[in-house]
Every structure is written in C-alpha cells, then in structure tokens.
C-alpha cells in the first residue's frame, strides 16, 4: 500500500484518551470523562465515520478495546505502542522489564505469535537491535488492541524519534516490511520531528505508506524549524497526515486544517480532544 489514493485524508485520533493533550490536563480529563465507557467511544467512532473520517487512529487501552468490540468497522489504524503506559511500567521494571511484564500478561495465541516473530528476528534480538526488538513489542501491543484487522499500523512518535535520533535507516526499512507482511496493512510512522524524518526518508530512499506529524500555523512542535519542515513537506513523496493542528489551542481547528492542507499535507488526524461534537466538527472540515 504505497499509492497515495489508499492513504486516508481524515482520521479521528485518540491521543487524548492516553492523557496526552497539548490543550492541557483539564481538556484531557474532560475527554476521558466523556468517553469513559466503550459504548460511548464506539458511538464517537461511528459518528466520525458518518462524517467522512476514513478511520480512527488509536492506541490500546481498555476503553478503546471495548469501543472496537462495539464498532469494529474497517478503518482502525493502530498507533503502537501505548507509550505512556509503557513508560509508567518501565519506571518500576525498567525498559526491558516493562516488556517482560507484557509477555507475562499475554495469552497463548499472542505468545505463539510472539515466539514466531522472535524466531524470525532472533539474530537482531540477540544483537540488541531496535529493528528486531520493536516488532516483538508491536506483537504484544497489537494483541492488546484487540482489533481483528487493522488498516494500518503507525509507530508512535517516541519510538520513531528514538530510531530517528540514531539515524537507524534499517529500522525504518525493516518496520515497513514487517508491518505490511505481518499485519497486512499500511505501515506508518508518527513523529514529533517531522522535518527531520521526511528529510531522512528522502535521503534513504524509503517510502512508508504514511507519516503522521505536527503541522500548524504557529510552528508548535515543527522541527527542526517550521520553515524547514514545510519545505520538506512540499517535496515529500510520502503522504503526511498532519496532527497538532490547533497548536495546543492557540488556533481554531479550521485554521489549522486549512494551513496543513495548503502546505501539502495529504490528510489530517483530528484528535477527540479537539472536537466538542465529533460529527459536526469533522463534517465542518469536510465542507471546507
């Protein structure tokens, strides 16, 4: 899946469900309260699809699992791993311990898949290569998401950015291949260093199916700088879905969406936290 035609133009994002919101803690808590049960979140997913969103971009949490069970749909995009949860676990057990904790919680089917992936990645796992370790983590997280099938898997920004910091070309190349073959969907990367990532992908000649990153009129989180990022965005052959459209609440969603589209973003990821009314909010974006 590399043709731009199959990459969504609009996804509903669920980052705020993890407690992460540039708009602040109160906003994140409001979203968490509003979608505290899976049925309510499933209704939001259905409403988003009704308003033109081609899917949802979500990480594995208990409420997301419930929602996907209620409204499986076809447009589930997995944002893996659930980094805040992993970080919390690693504060106690360390980075490796947090992974072991997940293995212990896994069912037999997941363990079997994990074993297969482990065997096929054995040399790189033994060598401590990130390109071999992350697929194991994705197996665990995918099982935790509970989706029967996904349209694609997007690697969460903190992991992407660690590999980007080390300029680990083979990591990106391998993850694309692994996700496509193992999960049968598109392979994408979320990043908070969009300009750097697009430049690196261009230099390396790699084309993941999509990249998700911040684009907004205020330049918030636009690295290495807003101008450099926009220049990369214009010349990128990889479709980019823009997020952080509202720059932490500094601009309206419509303004952020218009800016991203004008500067060459292929599509948008609009977070639940940016939508008081999911259906109306997304419909308004479609009409513009």
């Amino acid at each position: 899946m590399s043709a731009n035609g199959s990459v969504p133009r609009l996804l509903l994002g669920g980052e705020t469900l993890l407690g992460l919101s540039r708009a602040g803690r109160e906003s994140a808590q409001g979203v968490a309260r509003r979608y505290a049960d899976g049925a309510g979140l499933a209704r939001a997913f259905t409403a988003a699809r009704g308003a033109g969103a081609e899917g949802v971009l979500v990480s594995p949490t208990s409420v997301v699992r419930q929602a996907l069970a209620h409204a499986p749909g076809n447009g589930t995009w997995a944002l893996l791993p659930n980094v805040p949860e992993y970080v919390r676990d690693s504060a106690d057990a360390g980075l490796v311990g947090a992974a072991v904790l997940r293995v212990k919680r896994s069912g037999p089917v997941t363990l079997a898949r994990l074993a297969m992936t482990g065997v096929t990645h054995a040399p790189s796992v033994l060598a401590g290569d990130f390109a071999g370790l992350v697929p194991l983590l994705l197996e665990l997280e995918m099982a935790s998401l509970g989706a029967r099938r996904v349209a694609g898997v997007v690697l969460a920004a903190p992991i992407t950015d660690l590999a980007l910091a080390g300029r680990h070309r083979r990591f990106f190349e391998h993850l694309c291949g692994f996700v496509r073959s193992r999960f049968g969907g598109a392979a994408g990367f979320e990043t908070h260093n969009l300009g750097h990532l697009l430049a690196a992908l261009r230099e390396w000649g790699l084309k993941p199916d999509l990249v998700v990153g911040p684009v907004n009129p205020r330049g918030l989180l636009m690295k290495p700088s807003a101008d450099e990022l926009l220049a990369e965005l214009h010349r990128s052959p990889v479709p980019v879905l823009a997020k952080e459209l509202r720059a932490g609440g500094a601009v309206s969603l419509a303004e952020g969406a218009r800016f991203a589209r004008e500067h060459g973003a292929h599509g948008l990821v609009v977070d639940l936290g940016d939508l008081d009314d999911v259906e109306a909010g997304l419909r308004a974006l479609q009409m513009r």
Binding site: P158, D161, K223, G248
Partner: peptide, 15 residues
Amino acid sequence: VLPADLPHPARFELN
C-alpha cells in the same frame, strides 16, 4: 500566554 505563543528554538524534540 500559551506555549504556542512563545519561541520554540529546539531543533529536535524528545519529551
């Protein structure tokens, strides 16, 4: 004053 109102001079973002 929101963070977006201020300069953000870092060239790489991590947390």
